[in-house]
Write a protein that binds this DNA or RNA. Sequence first.
DNA 1: CCGATACATTAGCGTGAGCTAATACATTAG
DNA 2: CTAATGTATTAGCTCACGCTAATGTATCGG
Lengths: 109, 109
Amino acid sequence: MNEPAAISAVLRTLADPTRRALFERVVGADEMTVAELTRGSGVTQGAISQHLKSLKQAGLVAERPEGRNVYYRAEPEGLGPLVDWMSHYGVFWRDRFANLRTLLKEIDP
Amino acid sequence: MNEPAAISAVLRTLADPTRRALFERVVGADEMTVAELTRGSGVTQGAISQHLKSLKQAGLVAERPEGRNVYYRAEPEGLGPLVDWMSHYGVFWRDRFANLRTLLKEIDP
DNA sequence: CCGATACATTAGCGTGAGCTAATACATTAG
DNA sequence: CTAATGTATTAGCTCACGCTAATGTATCGG
């Protein structure tokens, strides 16, 4: 996928609150099954599968089938296009760089 | 606006390709009128005004009326919620930190 | 004044997104 | 084998979105 399309895909995918919440839950855990993700989501299992399909196509999650379960995990590279796109507007980040600095130190002191 | 709503607004606003292109053009210049932004946009002036309204409500642009012209400029704080949201997933950035490091040095050597 | 210009707003149209309910398919349990 | 469980897929509904065309409003020029 070329970059502009990737950016559109990531933004469009994360724009939906239900789907973003789903992604955040996947991020929080190492792996989760569809059934676990359905519980407490407020929507049907079918809807969850559809959202996971979108997230997968956007490169934000990956799946690992095991028996009749399918475990989903977050995919690091998925947010890459968004990071790259925002890097283009780095001039706007200056007010927020305290956060980034903290983050940098925490990861690579 | 509370933070979750702000994130949704920013993501939803930037998800549309036409609107994102509009934002990128505003970022590229200091200020632009609606007529200038309409030229080469591929859509009607009315559509541009609608998109600018969305961008304004998301906090991504600001306006400065002057006579019968209205000058639009990019608004730094608008991307803040998105930066904050992504900071939460800093664990995913490691592959991309070269870019951020470069950016940091460039701004505060 | 009066026509032209710049922008905003509205109604209406077409399209796509998200949801449910139902179904299909594979796997496990008994 | 049969029933139950986990997941994906589909059809169909509703609704919001982006667009155009048209109109409204204010400002500038002659």
